[in-house]
Design a protein around this nucleic acid. Structure first.
Lengths: 203, 203
DNA sequence: GACAAAGTGAACGGCTCCGTTCAATTAAAC
DNA sequence: GTTTAATTGAACGGAGCCGTTCACTTTGTC
């Protein structure tokens, strides 16, 4: 009985919290500001979440949940193994180098120090999940004879790492994006990967 | 004339500042605490650096200067190309996964957002420098006939990226170190790299 | 319509910290 | 020994923000 919690309001708070936290950092974010931008009283936030850290944790958890949706390898690209790897590599690199992702990455990393559980949640929702999914695909490619490899997890890491390259780093440290290197990097990663694991090289 | 600045004191302040900033983060570090731990008055710090941000910048610059010392490829390892790459790969991976390096990385990344110049300074002192140095070595290996490659910079990125793998990520997000995977990852990186660029594969 | 719980606005205590001021002290240069 | 400048300790103003309290209003259930 009584008045029920407003779920939409709750989600609005979390969204706005995520926005502020990931844009300005944990310490630099004032709860009053979140409240104002979410069109909500500060007291409501404290009633629902109790704590600044708890609100942050909720924002992280929510964002990680969104992450889970991405990178389902359901709709697999068609074509030669080279074409397929190229498409996948491009998708991965593009996904990881989105500005929001870079920012999210920075925040989580910084806050992991004081709250290790946060880093763990992110690892499971993001990188590990992606790695296992891609490794499974590589295993499938090995079964169909397109690839020859005995450690799909390792191979997955290698491919993803090469696709990221150092552009990843550059962006995390504020360097401007360099789209001209993008295709070259992916093509290079596919070349090297196929030289090592391509069925043609093992005939 | 008059009393000169105490250089030793100045360095002590910077060292202590670096320690605090990189351990607890910029916002969570109080200048008074730095002053106390450096055995110095807070006023002295303000006289010498003027500002909290300036002190942080000085600490970053100093740390980057230290970074410059590392990774001179003067004392090159001997042996087959496979052996040499293995040694280099291990050194790079070990260097990058030191806890201090991880922390430093996190801080710089987080602070780059509000001060892009800081990220730039780090990129030049660290990653780019290392990449160019290693690329030069790869070019040399190509000249001696140990490798066959036409883009040493790209190859350097690929090799380093594979050596880092995702352990890099894991550590940034607080996961425990996994030394058992270390050698496997390096060996895998060398295998793939040589499959693509080794002279033996291009005969 | 009565009730119960959620939401609001304003104000407050407390805390931390930045950056400044000032008078007093120290230490090097001349 | 005098001068010049760095250094110090203490204290202060001011700001920002967390988390709480309280009286009041809204909004839903019974």
């Amino acid at each position: 009985m009584g008045r029920p919690l407003d779920a939409a309001k709750q989600q609005g708070i979390i969204d706005m919290a995520a926005r502020h936290f990931f844009e300005h950092g944990y310490a630099a974010t004032a709860i009053e500001q979140i409240a104002a931008d979410a069109g909500v009283s500060k007291v409501t936030i404290y009633n629902q979440f109790g704590d600044k850290r708890a609100l942050f944790a909720a924002a992280v958890a929510c964002e990680c949940e969104k992450l889970r949706g991405h990178f389902s390898l359901d709709a697999m690209p068609q074509g030669t193994i080279r074409e397929r790897l190229t498409v996948i590599g491009e998708a991965i690199a593009a996904f990881l180098s989105r500005p929001e992702m870079i920012q999210f990455d920075r925040r989580i990393a910084a806050e992991t120090e004081t709250e290790p559980a946060i880093g763990e949640v992110f690892l499971d929702a993001g990188p590990r999940r992606m790695k296992h999914g891609f490794a499974a695909y590589l295993r499938y490619c090995a079964e169909t004879g397109d690839l020859v490899l005995d450690d799909p997890e390792l191979a997955a890491e290698q491919f993803v790492s090469m696709c990221k390259g150092m552009d990843d780093l550059e962006r995390r440290f504020g360097a401007a994006v360099t789209p001209e290197n993008f295709e070259r990097r992916i093509a290079g990663a596919v070349d090297v990967f196929l030289a090592a694991y391509g069925a043609a090289c093992h005939r």
